[in-house]
């Protein structure tokens, strides 16, 4: 039996749809709200429901053989895992945003305060791509609020539709990367259970 870690939240229902498409009898996202762990009706796979950022951790340590995580989480966490497939759902962009009209890409300057959940990605962007020193502020949520209340000049955050940004009077200044959900595997399990994992990955590839 393969153990698969899934992200709690917006990726869950799409992920479960994929497993239903490949013939696994799994419940809908609404029916597993409180369960942290379940198996499909035919006991072929065991699923763990964890926080999105914890998916690659479960996979890296081999507590889960496979996982479904957003590319954003993988880029940020830098875990040693194998990325098998782009599942093409969960599209979003990591962007730099400011209050409307406050900055353009070419006026971003040293000393800016940047609020973000994505410290690694933000550091890489400002240091390596723009080569400017900024002050990073780690937040855990409602990042859009930071420029409104003067906590930061700029934010680095994920946007799907851009609606939240718009509602808060913010606009995108630059795009750092595009993220979609990925099927990931533990690096050793991918080898030691290659046949099982590849067979499932092939079925998923056809379904997405």
């Amino acid at each position: 039996m393969l153990t698969i870690a899934l992200s709690k939240g917006y990726l869950l229902s799409e992920a479960l749809k994929v497993f239903r498409k490949v013939g696994l009898r799994v419940p809908a996202a609404d029916d597993i709200s409180r369960k942290l762990e379940f198996t499909d009706a035919d006991k072929k796979c065991r699923f763990l429901i964890v926080r999105p950022a914890d998916v690659p951790v479960y996979v890296e340590y081999g507590a889960a053989d496979l996982g479904i995580a957003g590319k954003d989480v993988l880029v940020e966490g830098r875990h040693k895992i194998t990325e098998l497939l782009d599942l093409k759902f969960g599209y979003c962009r990591l962007v730099v945003a400011t209050l409307k009209g406050a900055y353009r890409k070419d006026t971003l300057r040293a000393g800016l305060r940047v609020a973000t959940k994505f410290l690694n990605s933000a550091t890489e962007y400002f240091q390596e791509k723009l080569d400017i020193d900024v002050e990073l502020i780690k937040l855990y949520g409602s990042v859009e609020l930071a420029p409104l209340d003067g906590l930061s000049d700029v934010i680095v955050d994920l946007v799907a539709t851009g609606k939240t940004l718009q509602e808060n009077g913010l606009e995108v200044v630059d795009e750092i990367y595009i993220s979609t959900a990925r099927l990931i595997a533990n690096r050793v399990k991918a080898k030691s259970r290659y046949k099982e994992i590849l067979a499932l990955a092939q079925r998923i590839k056809k379904a997405v």
């Binding site: 590319k71 040693k80 895992i81 194998t82 990325e83 098998l84 497939l85 782009d86 990925r182 690096r187 991918a190 080898k191 290659y194 590849l198 990955a201 092939q202 590839k205």
Partner: peptide, 19 residues
């Protein structure tokens, strides 16, 4: 080297999973 087969657009052969 990054073990990123999503970027390669194909599933790995077993020998390609060695780092």
């Amino acid at each position: 080297q990054r073990q990123d087969f999503a970027a390669l657009g194909r599933l790995p052969r077993l020998s390609e999973l060695l780092s």
